[in-house]
Amino acid sequence: MKHSLLARIFYGFAALLVVSAFAFKIIQPIKVLPRIRLSPAFSLTDQNGERVTNEDLRGKIVLYTFTYTNCPAPCANLDATMQDVYARLDEANLGEIPFVRVTVSFDPARDTPSTLKSYADGLSANRATWVFATTDDEALLKTIIGVGFKAYYEKKADGSYAFDPTFILVDGWGTIRGEYRYSTEVSTADRILRHLSVLADEVHNATGSAKLAYEAAHLFLCYAK
């Protein structure tokens, strides 16, 4: 049985399509985290009474959260998520990329370095992997946390704070890549870890010609869920 020329071309293309579809399925399209906006600059004092700035954290992936140590029970969830992410960090395949957690207190009057230190010790937090910090400059602190990180907090008359529990993921270039403000069915730690692995893939793979594919993924908004 002889096929006409046109039919053979047609079958050829059909085969090519099927092969491409399989290749697409196997290779998987690249997913990225959006470059949301610049992470704010800051100079804070940590639990050891030493200065920590955004420039010190350049080159590291940083997970921020915002709280105060006098916070009643619900804030423990923030600490638990920070601990959970760190305990399961292997899932993110960060490799050699340094990762640091930073808890910023919006209550500098009570959260002095020594208070932060004993709070950190209570969580067995090591300064190298978990920084607790704040600054006495309350106006600037409000700009950094409230405007820069867009994490709402407000002091109430009784000295406690109303605030929205927030986690912010920042890459090594000082760009905000993930914001976690609302509870979903998926735990926040699960989402953060999945996003960390997407970010690690980009850091590891977006070099040479593959960079073009990653930039295209940014351009076409191929964002990870």
Binding site: P40, A41, F42, S43, T143, G148
Partner: peptide, 8 residues
């Protein structure tokens, strides 16, 4: 400066 990520 802070909001533009500029430390000085």
């Amino acid at each position: 400066a802070s909001l533009y990520g500029i430390f000085y």
